[in-house]
Nucleic acid binder design. Structure first.
Length: 150
DNA sequence: GCCAACGTTGGC
DNA sequence: GCCAACGTTGGC
């Protein structure tokens, strides 16, 4: 069992969207590090859903991995914003996973709160200059965050 | 809207 | 293989 954080701009895709859809592919990742993390994901891994580029950047809920990495077909769709001519059906460059809604938190956990929480020292999200849209969390950090919700 | 930080691209 | 230029991310 591993723990991950996935960022999304709520204007584009929010926790409410995921709740309505129940499950959704996580398409459009075009960064090698983030892609590699997705390929490490296993069914039932826990995902912290993070809203970025918004008024109060926060973890807003959780989801689970419901389908392990498979080719991101938007990469070979010429009409998609995520099209990449270097990715082909025979040799796909980009992958996605499916995630399934688990919970929307009554009280989101803001970036600001996490930064002031000494127990979260070392969490990559809180380190300066981090731009990765998918990050792993240690079991300790994940459990600490989950505890704060109960 | 600004800008620091970072990844990617491409010329050499 | 180096590195300058460029594009993107995302907090503030």
């Amino acid at each position: 069992m591993n723990y991950w954080l996935m960022k999304s701009e709520p204007d584009a895709f929010s926790i409410d969207d995921l709740e309505m859809m129940k499950s959704s592919p996580w398409d459009g990742v075009r960064n090698y590090q983030a892609r590699n993390f997705m390929r490490e994901m296993r069914t039932d891994d826990i995902i912290f859903f993070y809203h970025s580029s918004c008024k109060v950047p926060s973890i807003v809920g959780t989801a689970k991995v419901s389908k392990e990495a498979y080719p991101d077909h938007t990469s070979w769709d010429e009409n998609s914003a995520y099209f990449d001519a270097k990715s082909t059906r025979d040799n796909p460059r980009w992958f996605m996973v499916d995630i399934t809604f688990q919970a929307k938190w009554k009280t989101p956990l803001s970036l600001k709160e996490m930064k002031s929480d000494h127990a979260l020292v070392g969490f990559k999200l809180l380190e300066k200059g981090n731009r990765l849209s998918i990050l792993p969390l240690s079991r300790e950090h994940a459990q600490h965050i989950l505890m704060s919700q109960t």
